[in-house]
Design a protein around this nucleic acid. Structure first.
Lengths: 185, 185
DNA sequence: GCGGTAGCGGAATCGTCATTCCGCTTACGG
DNA sequence: CCGTAAGCGGAATGACGATTCCGCTACCGC
């Protein structure tokens, strides 16, 4: 008996995920499963053996993306200098940029509740620390930070190409407005 | 002969537009024409007599929204105190909020080129004036402003409900980061 | 009121997918 | 090497939804 998938099946699974990112990035939710399959070099049947449905495939992409983000959140929480919040926001920017092409798709489904909760908790804790350390103004709240995160997402996933330099500049300006010292980061 | 539409036809057209806003807001691009028709109290045939296709219907919604925004841009350009830029950004927020439910749909098509050009021109001119008047820092560029507009859009159209208070607070914080005097508006 | 045309409704048509099914292949433990 | 179950491909099925078509209706000008 096997423990996991046969080697070829595992390879195909990876190819399918990569093709799905590509195709969803190009066509959004309207992407056809046939297109994903052919782009991955397999038949549709193979896609369906691995992922129960189109929705399940999208959910898996979301799960993978959130998993990366959670790792970043842990890194930010490890900092003790009051700039963990700044780091987390930077991680958001990076993640949004990475998944930019198909991100709008992911955002339309409710994420894994546990992951979302963990991220919210990280934001709350890091905001508390930043206020305490004086790395943002006293009057900054969690709501301000989530609004910023949401706006950052909108900026990056919005219309055209947004370079890292663009969103970093945006983030810097906003953090300045939040009372962050110039020597942040 | 008639100059325009028959009175009942005109009424139906308005109902269709209203229903379309409603239904597109609920289901996004996947909204069914049948649903729009029944919500408007007419048959699908009637919808198609007025709008050549689903795309044409969406385009008309976009055209109407842009038309409002252009009027706001003109108002902002009429100011001479250097705060026209602030006013335009506020108008963006208002407009985004107004069309929030179905806005994502509109944003996925390329807007009327002329309207887009006019808005870009207004942003450019108002940014120039704001820098000259010192109502934002010297180093603020048009790119910074368009990024802010894009982010504002993302904030409002993103996930859940965003009240006017929320996006105004966001805008204030960002403008502060841009060096706007506290007594803005 | 009347005639005629602009309008109307909604069944029928045509395509486009998601998903299923099953006979054929291939990896791999022994 | 072999047997066999895991995998595979892709045609077939079923829904759904945009768009068309045409016989019927109700405004509008006179």
């Amino acid at each position: 008996m096997h423990r996991g998938l046969r080697r070829d099946a595992l390879r195909n699974q990876q190819r399918i995920l990569a093709a799905a990112r590509e195709v969803f990035g190009e066509y959004g939710a309207d992407a056809a499963m046939e297109e994903i399959a052919s782009r991955a070099g397999v038949g549709v049947g193979t896609v369906y053996r691995r992922f129960a449905s189109k929705d399940a495939l999208i959910d898996e992409l979301l799960r993978l993306a959130l998993s990366d983000l959670l790792a970043d959140a842990d890194l930010a929480l490890a900092r003790t200098d009051g700039f963990g919040l700044h780091e987390l926001l930077g991680a958001f920017g990076r993640s949004f940029g990475e998944h930019a092409r198909y991100a709008n798709l992911l955002l339309q489904r409710q994420p894994d509740a546990a992951a979302e909760l963990a991220i919210r908790a990280a934001i709350t804790e890091l905001t508390r620390r930043a206020v305490a350390a004086g790395t943002v103004s006293q009057d900054i709240t969690v709501a301000d930070v989530t609004a910023l995160a949401s706006a950052l997402r909108g900026l990056i996933h919005g219309g055209g190409e947004v370079t890292a330099r663009t969103w970093q500049r945006f983030l810097d300006l906003h953090l300045a407005g939040m009372g962050s010292p110039p020597a942040r980061r």
